[in-house]
Design a protein around this nucleic acid. Sequence first.
DNA 1: CGGGATCCCTTCGGATACTG
DNA 2: CAGTATCCGAAGGGATCCCG
Lengths: 118, 118
Amino acid sequence: METSGPDHATRLIDAPARGCGIERTLQVLDGKWTTLIIRELLPGPKRFGELRTALGTPSAKTLTDRLRILERQNILTRTVHAEVPPRVVYQLTDQGQSLSSVLYAMLSWGEQHPLIED
Amino acid sequence: METSGPDHATRLIDAPARGCGIERTLQVLDGKWTTLIIRELLPGPKRFGELRTALGTPSAKTLTDRLRILERQNILTRTVHAEVPPRVVYQLTDQGQSLSSVLYAMLSWGEQHPLIED
DNA sequence: CGGGATCCCTTCGGATACTG
DNA sequence: CAGTATCCGAAGGGATCCCG
């Protein structure tokens, strides 16, 4: 993976410090939970409660706030099924799915670099 | 890039939600400035003042705090040159350099997905 | 069940002043 | 120049209660 692409380094060096693509990505992958939310939704849609459990039970407010932001950013969709009890399903958009490339890079790096300390 | 690797998706789906490599990466790429600091250091070492200017002048405290954390995490080194005036140089470690794979993924995604709002 | 409303606390980041 | 020390405001995240 490192063999074929010295071009990667070049593009990273050439990108202007401010206003480059990295900053747009950071605008999405912001906050404590966002990246993990996307990770949970990659396999397929999930309900609010499923998400909450899978993430380790963040507060409802925290999760709701973040999901609303991601919805506005067109990373996921929110579908309300008018039933009793209500069922609300979150699903990644194509744009959200495409973040898998970033998440995969994060996964690979994290697996290869166990942190020494905190 | 999407053509050859359905394996990427598989590994992302299989990774356990908590304690997977993604979370270790998030432990490093934390806070408002970290990712941009690393981006600035990829081309080569920089002095404290150079970093500050390149990033858009965050407060000295903010930058110092974050640099100390990254030093403890073995992402970069801090070298003090005993001169007058003092000169302090920050340089990525091999581990820090290796984060370029993640930054490159962020750059690519950001370039291809201009945000609609927010 | 999936929130909304409210209150609260911690943390992050910034402003300012001072130092080796 | 590159910090340290101190104080501060805003925001993120959480706890609790209530509702359709």
